[in-house]
Structure formats: structure tokens, C-alpha cells
């Protein structure tokens, strides 16, 4: 049943990457419990615009949990208090009337703040560009049954490919490590025959790029897995470790 909430919002405001930011406190009232978290911010922004203030900048696109754009660190957790959802799929019914909600951008040196809650996640794109692909000639698609793939492998590869690259793993990790993201992108190809040809060079290139971007190492706390909106497993990190070390010893 629909209810209405009065909330206090503590939101990180920062003009751009080169100036220091700070928290601003806003009161919002009459927020429907059926709203998504982003719609609640929309309500605040409408008011700020009407009052002639600068609206809160935040990333969003599909608003249905599949694009990976929204990136808010809410009350100490990426994408807020619920598991398996992105911020756009987080509903206000998950909060209590009168609650104070702290909203911060992803914090990582590899994810510099662009403005307010918007961070630059192009480091992820560069990790993909370093090796997250298969080099195949384009042309007619070949018959699907030409390459026998066990159902289990197909399922596991698909589960890894569910990663939307939102960066919640980096945000949740105490080391701002991108291991879960990178390992998912290594795994989705390592599990399939098409990925075998470039397996060794892929693991080495992607890990090297990940380190160069300034992400931390893995402490195996499992925070990334717990906070991932797509439920990517840390089994992928172990697989990446295997891929990387076997590439270390077998590559020429």
C-alpha cells in the first residue's frame, strides 16, 4: 500500500573533479513509497530547479536495472540497502519515515568524480579494450551446433556475462578493487571455446590494464559479490587467478 515519507537527505555536492566537495542537507516531504530512489531525487531536483539552484547531477539511463549507469552509495552501501538491485530498482518503501539518508558517489582513485554523484568509469572501458574480446572474422553467422558447448559452461559464461559494469564491486571493496568486474569479463570468454585462442594474452593484458588504472588488490572479503546487483560470483576471481598464472608460465 502506498505511503508517504518525509526524509532528510545528506547528498555529496562537488562542482567538478578539481574542487573539493561537501555534503549538503535537503529535506524532502510527501515521497511516495512506490517511487524509485532516482524518482525521489528527480522530485528534489525539480524543486531545486524551480528555486533556481543547481540540480544534483547523477548517472542514470534505462531505469530498469540493466544498463549499469546508476551509481549511488546509499547509507554506506552501493545501490542501497537491498541485495540484487541497482539504485533505479531500489524503492522508497525500503526506507522509514523521518530517516536520514546519506548519498555519496563511488569512491575510488580510478573513478574520479565528474560532478556531484557522477563518476568517470571509463577505466572499465579500457580494461575491456585491453583484451575483453574475441578476434573473429565477421560474415555469416555459422551454425550454432558447429561448436559443441556443455550446457553448464554456457550457463556459467552467461552468468558472468550478466555483469553490467556498474562499478558497485569497486565501490563496495575496501581496496577499491576491480577484480570482480575484470574476472567476469575474463570468465565469460574463458568458459567458451571461442575464447581459448586468446586466453593467455587476454588474462595478462586485462590484469595489467586493471593495475595501471589504479584499482586495488583483492582481500577476498566477498563484499563485491554480496553487493553486486547481478549476483556475479567470486568464483570468477579464482578463475581469473588460474587464467593469469597459467598464462604467466605458459605464454611465450
Amino acid at each position: 500500500m502506498e505511503g508517504h515519507l518525509n526524509l532528510t537527505l545528506k547528498i555529496w555536492r562537488q562542482k567538478n573533479a578539481s574542487v573539493a566537495g561537501k555534503f549538503e542537507t535537503y529535506q524532502v516531504s510527501g515521497i511516495s513509497t512506490d517511487m524509485s530512489f532516482l524518482e525521489m531525487i528527480d522530485v528534489l531536483n525539480n524543486r531545486l530547479i524551480e528555486e533556481g539552484d543547481d540540480p544534483v547531477a547523477f548517472d542514470h539511463d534505462c531505469r530498469e536495472g540493466i544498463c549499469g549507469m546508476c551509481s549511488m552509495y546509499i547509507n554506506g552501501r552501493p545501490h542501497g540497502p537491498n541485495r540484487g538491485v541497482t539504485t533505479c530498482q531500489l524503492h522508497m518503501r525500503s526506507f522509514q519515515d523521518g530517516e536520514t539518508i546519506t548519498v555519496e558517489p563511488w569512491r575510488a582513485s580510478a573513478f574520479p568524480v565528474i560532478k556531484d554523484l557522477v563518476v568517470n568509469r571509463s577505466a572499465f572501458d579500457r580494461i575491456i579494450a585491453a583484451g575483453g574480446f574475441v578476434s573473429v572474422n565477421t560474415g555469416n553467422a555459422q551454425d550454432a551446433n558447429n561448436l559443441p558447448i556443455p550446457k553448464e559452461n554456457a550457463d556459467e559464461a552467461f552468468a558472468a556475462a550478466a555483469c553490467i559494469g556498474c562499478g558497485a564491486c569497486v565501490a563496495a571493496c575496501k581496496n577499491a578493487s576491480a577484480m570482480l568486474f575484470t574476472s567476469a569479463k575474463v570468465s565469460q570468454l574463458a568458459l567458451l571455446p571461442q575464447g581459448q585462442v586468446e586466453a593467455a594474452s587476454r588474462a595478462q593484458a586485462m590484469v595489467a590494464q586493471m593495475d595501471e588504472e589504479g584499482f586495488g588488490a583483492c582481500s577476498n572479503t566477498g563484499a563485491c559479490e554480496a553487493e553486486c546487483p547481478k549476483g556475479i560470483s567470486i568464483e570468477n576471481i579464482a578463475r581469473m587467478n588460474r587464467e593469469y598464472f597459467s598464462a604467466t608460465f605458459s605464454s611465450k
Partner: peptide, 19 residues
């Protein structure tokens, strides 16, 4: 090294929720 990867700390961290 890991400490240096997050130069600006979070104001609020709910670590117990995930690890």
C-alpha cells in the same frame, strides 16, 4: 597500496552488511 586506492573516504560505510 590498497589504502591509497581510495583517497577520499566514505562518510558512512556499512561493512557488516556485506563482509
Amino acid at each position: 597500496e590498497n589504502k591509497s586506492k581510495r583517497p577520499v573516504a566514505y562518510a558512512k560505510v556499512d561493512g557488516a552488511a556485506n563482509s
